[in-house]
Amino acid sequence: MKDKMNIYILFLMALLLLYLAGCGPHVQIDKSYYHRSVQSDDGVAVQVPDYPKRILALSSAYDTILLGLVDPSRLAGVNSLSTYEQYSLEAHKAKHVKTVMRSYSLEKVIALHPDVVIAPEYITRDVIEGLRYMGIPTVVVNTGKTVEGVINNVETVATLVNESERGDQHVASIRQDIERMRQLGSTIDSKDRKRVLFVSSMDGYTGRDSLFDDMCRYMYIDNAPTAMGYPSHTSFTDERVIAMNPDYIFIPAYKGLDKNLSDRFLKTPAFHTIPAMVNHHVEPLPAAYLYTANQHIGNAMLSIMYVVYPQLERKSHE
């Protein structure tokens, strides 16, 4: 362990020497620029700029939050997924960010000269500690795994980039959508509730204790794997899909429908007797609704609710 740590320190020192020697992009840290202290979710107090101008998020979910708060010119880069129309509801803004990333190696992040980095908890410690060692303020924000957790993250990121007023507006909009769902949901009899299976290329991702599972409570929908009592991240085998007997099956669309997933459900004879197939309720849904850990979560939930209960959309327009 000691040898590994020594190698790690030497690696970081070598990086620093390269930068100071001019062998790479030169990083100048103006400490007078960092006036605010924020608490990172890994327990570290981080000094951040009053008004960050080169913000970098190491997650497409946080890209979407940021693009709803700041002008794209204030972002040092975005994830490539954030530029897909069906993956991010802020894709039109993401396309105005010059640097598009597919990975977040330490070297790539440093080369962008960010004045603050927002990292989810699953980013490796080597990257987080390496960025801090280089003097780049790096704040860990834990991924929102519930609707309330997502709302909290919108507030946290808004505060971090000094856009609390816009963050408050987004939160108010989400709360308004939640209240609308409560009013609509109160008209649904318990015997009329629908059972939904939302599949993902990450098998079991939308099962018990997932963000989608929590969203279902607000939408007055029964999440099929939870209704069957399956533990978190249980894979959706053919036998389990048949046992779940969903009324709707949602397949995420990115730049188009996920063909592997759609073929699996549309071309498996054993599935043809389940209600979703009988009633032609195998539906494409923008991936942005599946990965909606951002300010659009209220609108995403309402949209899904209207697909499952089309009579409610008609009622909302009366």
Rank of each mutant, 00 (worst) to 15 (best):
T83R: 12
K53Y: 05
A227H: 13
S303A: 15
R182N: 14
I29S: 01
T138R: 07
I9F: 11
A158N: 02
Y306W: 09
I118D: 03
Q311D: 14
Y51L: 04
E90A: 13
L312T: 09
S60D: 13
M5F: 14
K255D: 12
G185L: 09
S303L: 03
A253S: 15
R195T: 14
R264S: 05
H296D: 09
E165G: 02
A276F: 07
D247P: 06
L75E: 06
K98L: 09
G204C: 05
T138N: 07
H296M: 06
K31W: 11
E313V: 01
T237I: 03
R180E: 14
Y8A: 10
M101H: 03
G229T: 09
L89Q: 13
P114I: 04
S190A: 08
Y291I: 03
G185A: 04
R195F: 01
M277L: 08
T187E: 10
F198M: 13
Y62V: 01
I251G: 06
I136F: 08
I55P: 10
K93T: 00
K53C: 05
P275K: 06
Y51G: 01
T156S: 01
V127K: 11
R74I: 01
S200R: 01
G135D: 10
S190D: 09
G298T: 05
L20M: 12
N245R: 02
Q295F: 08
V38Q: 10
I29K: 13
G149D: 04
S210H: 03
G68S: 11
S186H: 12
F212Q: 12
